[in-house]
Design a protein around this nucleic acid. Structure first.
Lengths: 232, 232
DNA sequence: CATGGAATTTAATTTATGTTAAACTCGCCC
DNA sequence: GGGCGAGTTTAACATAAATTAAATTCCATG
């Protein structure tokens, strides 16, 4: 039961030769890609992307076969080339949109937080956002997380940049909290950040709804992080 | 600069047809496989295994090519078949010995701990052991950790069993600590365990000696875990 | 120093899978 | 209702590995 999510990047379809065919029907692309709908073409493309994200999150970068993706998207493998220039391109897009969506989500959550909130509380908000997005919402995120380390540098550029940005948000959270005295001074903020993020990232490896409610996981993680970081 | 470690399983070489050739010279296998030495054959086998562990830890299960392994072990790919029945067999052994060695290490460390030590302190010992073994000692462990989720079930049996055993040691640590009141009662021991182990496992993804000393990482992790779990 | 088996190599085979090329289908517009 | 192009399929191709076979080197022992 594949999860999906991660609104596709703009139309910009057509990969073929020298863009001789148009691929995007004149209809003009819907500006907001409302959930699922859009042109038939857009929906198919999305299905391929979703399938790729799912396969990728399960079998990993090198293990993802186009035939698997095709099967899950319910079309034939060569059809994929109508939408993507190559296997690597497809993967690239999944990986990129994975963290991109994650970052967007985190930014939204943080922006919605009341002003003057305690810096440590902001970290806990991030814990909530990260965990929920990873476990509940998106195969894309799982794919990004699990395969980041195994990608050939070629595909990596865009994702790496995005990952860096994402990490910087977290870094900010930690350095501020540290500066404000909301985090124990014996803790290196960078190491603390990486350890916390690790605990969250790894959750994709073991958690499933059968392991208990996501709410409980989030609460437990928050509780450990709060107490783990806060001064006595 | 590949790390290795994980004393090979007994000789039991020869995979060929119906074990027509002996592969293990009459010399009789050294009982304890002292570090590196042993028959020339044994050493070569070990080199292949080490190379496989390294490649596996970097490129992942599906990404590991026999030619990569061969290159790193300084021989030709087909030579690998003199020692292993198949690529999968080779991988299986790396993955298995990865956690097996890890478990052995953890057991030793815990056994060496003074009696009556605080249950929470025992967890911190485990944190130290896990982290150091993962980051300092063994490509095998890294390979096991990073690829556990992507292995076809076929190869998985032995490793899975070992992983379970390893997890049980940790589970014991947590349930005891919890029962003893050394861990806050609002924490689900299982979830706490998984989150902590996640933070440690993930360290393989980001840590390198250039990221600061391993000692600091260990101390930081212990500090967060201690405060994260201990009652007020 | 010749011989036999251990260890390893080069050459050949097989198979899987990404990719391309060439049709084919089907709905829409004139 | 004929044609055209978007979308998709089937057939063909190319290549990269894994595996196997055959040939070769190495080395201990007689």
């Amino acid at each position: 039961m594949p999860r999906k999510t991660a609104t596709a990047t703009p139309p910009k379809v057509a990969a073929k030769k020298a863009a001789s065919r148009t691929a995007v029907p004149k209809k003009a692309a819907a500006k907001k890609a409302p959930a699922d709908s859009g042109t038939k073409s857009e929906r198919t493309r999305q299905r391929v992307l979703d399938a790729a994200a799912h396969v990728l999150s399960v079998k990993g970068y090198a293990g993802m076969r186009l035939s698997d993706v095709a099967e899950e998207a319910e079309l034939q493998a060569p059809a994929i080339y109508y939408y993507f220039k190559s296997r690597e391109d497809l993967i690239e897009e999944v990986m990129y949109s994975g963290i991109a969506a994650m970052r967007q989500h985190l930014v939204e959550v943080l922006d919605a937080a009341p002003d003057g909130i305690d810096p440590l509380e902001r970290i806990l908000l991030a814990v909530d956002a990260h965990l929920r997005h990873e476990l509940e919402i998106s195969d894309y995120t799982t794919a990004s997380i699990r395969n980041a380390g195994q990608l050939p540098d070629a595909i990596n550029k865009r994702q790496q940049a995005e990952t860096k940005k994402y990490g910087e948000i977290w870094r900010d959270l930690f350095t501020r909290a540290s500066a404000d005295g909301a985090i124990r001074t014996d803790l290196d903020p960078y190491l603390a950040q990486m350890l916390v993020m690790g605990a969250l990232n790894w959750a994709a490896e073991w958690w499933s709804p059968r392991r208990g409610s996501l709410d409980t996981v989030v609460e437990t993680a928050q509780s450990i992080v709060r107490n783990g970081l806060a001064p006595a």
